[in-house]
C-alpha cells in the first residue's frame, strides 16, 4: 500500500479513491449533468457534482476541498436515483465534505459543517439525540448575543412545539439515552481509530 501512495502521490484522483467514502466511483462519471439538474439546492452550488468529479480528475485539490458545494447536500438522494452510471453521488459528496474537514480545508463558518458536528456531539453524549440541547447549540453557535437573538426569533415556534408536547424543557436535565453511553462511546471510538488508521498520507 505504501508503494502505491508513493507512486501516485501527485494524483488527486488516487487520493480521493483511497480516502473518500465511495471515492473509487469518481472515475465512472460520464459528465452528463443529470445530478446538477436534479439537485434541490443546485442553484446554490459553486460546482455541481459532475464538475466536482471532473475537477478531481484534473487534480484541482485545493479548489475541490475548500469548496462550499458538497456542504449543500440535503441527502435527498435524487442524484443517486437518477445517475445513469449508478454513482453513489450523495455518499461521495458526504465523503468529500468529511475529508475536507479532516484536512482542515473546509470553508470557515460553514453552517452545515457546524451543524453536522453539533448533531454528532449531541448524539454521542447519550446515544440518542437531545433535540432541545441540539436546538440551543445551533442558536448559540455564533456566541451568546446572537444566540439570544436566534432564540427570540424562534420563541413562538418553541412555544408552539411545547404546547403540542413535541418539545420538552426538562430535556435540559438529561433526556433520553442508551443504558450505557460509555459502552457506546467505546465502540464508536474504536471505529474512529480504525477509520483514522485507514487514511493514507498524500500530503
Amino acid at each position: 500500500m505504501s508503494t502505491n501512495s508513493q507512486k501516485y502521490r501527485n494524483s488527486f484522483l488516487k487520493e480521493v479513491e483511497a480516502n473518500v467514502e465511495e471515492g473509487e466511483w469518481v472515475k465512472m462519471c460520464m459528465q452528463c449533468g443529470v445530478c446538477a439538474g436534479s439537485c434541490p439546492l443546485g442553484k446554490h452550488w459553486d460546482h455541481p457534482p459532475q464538475e466536482i468529479f471532473m475537477m478531481i480528475r484534473a487534480g484541482k485539490r485545493e479548489e475541490v476541498l475548500s469548496s462550499d458545494s458538497m456542504w449543500m447536500c440535503t441527502s435527498c438522494y435524487n442524484c443517486i436515483a437518477r445517475c445513469p452510471r449508478g454513482l453513489p453521488i450523495t455518499h461521495i459528496m458526504h465523503g468529500l465534505a468529511v475529508y475536507s474537514k479532516r484536512l482542515g480545508l473546509m470553508p470557515d463558518n460553514q453552517p452545515t459543517a457546524e451543524f453536522g458536528q453539533i448533531f454528532w456531539d449531541n448524539l454521542m453524549k447519550k446515544g440518542r439525540v437531545n433535540e432541545l440541547k441540539m436546538g440551543l447549540s445551533m442558536y448559540f453557535k455564533d456566541g451568546f448575543s446572537q444566540g439570544i437573538k436566534n432564540a427570540m426569533a424562534n420563541q413562538k415556534l418553541g412555544q408552539n412545539m411545547m404546547k403540542a408536547k413535541r418539545m420538552n424543557a426538562m430535556e435540559i436535565m438529561g433526556g433520553h439515552g442508551v443504558n450505557s453511553p460509555g459502552d457506546l462511546a467505546k465502540i464508536i471510538k474504536k471505529a474512529q481509530e480504525i477509520e483514522d488508521g485507514n487514511i493514507q498520507d498524500f500530503s
Binding site: 465534505a97 452545515t112 451543524f115 453536522g116 439525540v129 471505529a191
Partner: peptide, 21 residues
C-alpha cells in the same frame, strides 16, 4: 437499548465507519 442512526447529517461529525457502526 437502540441508539441514534446518525440521521442524514451525522456524517459531518462521524465520517463513514463510525456512522455505519
Amino acid at each position: 437499548d437502540w441508539n441514534c442512526c446518525g440521521a442524514s447529517i451525522g456524517y459531518g461529525g462521524g465520517g463513514e465507519l463510525p456512522r455505519l457502526t
